Computed example of a mutant assay.
Amino acid sequence: MYLTRFRLNTARAGSRHLLASPQRMHAAVMSSFADVLPGDPHAPRVLWRIDRNSRAEALLFIVSEQRPDLTHLVEQAGWPTTAAWQTYEYTSFLDGLAKGGIWDFRLTANPVHHVRRSTDEIRKRTAHRTPRHQMGWLLDRQERAGFRVLETPAERRRLAQGDEHQLTVRDEQRHRFGKTDTGTGLANRVPLVTVTFDGRLEITDPELLRRTLTLGLGKAKAYGCGLMTLAAASGGTR
C-alpha cells in the first residue's frame, strides 16, 4: 500500500477546475495508474481526499495498492519546474498499529441516513445536515471501524450538548452533478454533501482499523470521501 501527498497550485486555472468537481478530480486521480482503464469496474480500490487548509493551500491525499504517477497533475495543477509529489510506503505503518494507541485523525466523509415520509414511500438516502447528527453518524460507526473517539474531560467541555467527544466537524461542501443510472440509462442530478472530521481516537481493533484506512469509511468513495489518515497525537486536548 502507498500513501501519496500532492499540493495543488490554487493560483492555476487547472487546479481550480479540478477542485470545483469531484467527478473531474476522481478522473484525474484514476489517470495516475497506467494499468487502470477509464470506467474499468474491476479497477483496484483507490481512496483520495482534498484537504482545504486555506485559500492558498489544498492538498490531495491518495491511498492505493499501486504507486501512482502524478506527472499529469503536476503539469496541469502544480509547479512543473519546482515541486512534485511525495509517495510513502504505507504497509509498514499499518502493520505497526497497536491496540490502545492514541492518534489524531482526519476524515472526509458523506454522512447519510435513509428516511421515508410515509409508510408506502421508498426509503431515500439523505444527507445529515447538522454537525450534531454528522458527528453522531461517525460515532455510530466507530466500533465497527476499529477505534473509539476519545471523550472530552468534563472540566474542559464548553457546551451543554455536542462537546462530549474530542471531535470537530468543518468544511461542509455541497455538490450536484450529472450521473447516468447503469440500470435504466437515464441521466439524473446527484447531490453530494461532504464534511471533514478532525479528532482524536484510541485504537480498539488494529485489524478493523487497517481495513478502514485502506478500504474507506462510508459512501461516495469515488468522490473524495472515506479516506481517514492518522497523525501522532499532539499535546493537550482538542
Rank of each mutant, 00 (worst) to 15 (best):
D181Y: 12
T82P: 05
R16I: 07
D104S: 09
R174L: 14
T10C: 08
A154D: 06
E202Q: 11
P38K: 06
V46W: 07
V115G: 03
G224N: 12
T108V: 13
R45P: 05
S64P: 05
G216F: 11
K179Q: 14
A98D: 09
F61G: 07
A154Q: 10
M228C: 12
A231I: 01
L227W: 03
T91F: 05
Q23F: 00
L227T: 13
L186N: 10
P131D: 10
A231T: 11
N188P: 02
L47A: 14
D198S: 12
E143C: 06
G199F: 12
G178R: 14
G216W: 14
H17P: 00
L37P: 02
L209D: 02
R67F: 07
L139Y: 10
T4Y: 01
G224L: 03
Y2W: 13
Q86G: 00
R200H: 11
L227R: 10
R52W: 09
T229C: 00
E202W: 00
H17W: 05
T196S: 06
V74I: 15
E207P: 03
L37N: 12
R238W: 14
T82W: 09
A222W: 03
P41T: 05
L208S: 04
V195Y: 01
P80R: 09
R52K: 10
R125N: 04
R157I: 06
L18P: 02
D205Q: 15
R5M: 02
T81K: 06
A220L: 14
A222H: 11
V193K: 03
N188T: 13
W48C: 06
A13M: 08
A27Q: 05
N110L: 05
G96H: 10
Q142W: 01
W85K: 02
G199I: 09
T182H: 11
D171K: 13
L94Q: 00
L8M: 12
T229P: 00
T214V: 10
G185V: 15
R176T: 09
R238I: 11
K221Q: 15
T214Y: 14
A28D: 02
G146Q: 12
V169N: 07
R125L: 10
H113R: 08
D205T: 05
L37R: 15
H26C: 12
T168A: 13
I102P: 03
T152S: 06
K219Q: 11
H133E: 03
G178I: 03
Q23K: 08
T126N: 05
A27Y: 13
A233V: 15
A11N: 12
R144D: 10
D51H: 15
S32A: 13
T82G: 08
L107D: 02
H42T: 03
R200Q: 13
F105S: 02
H114G: 06
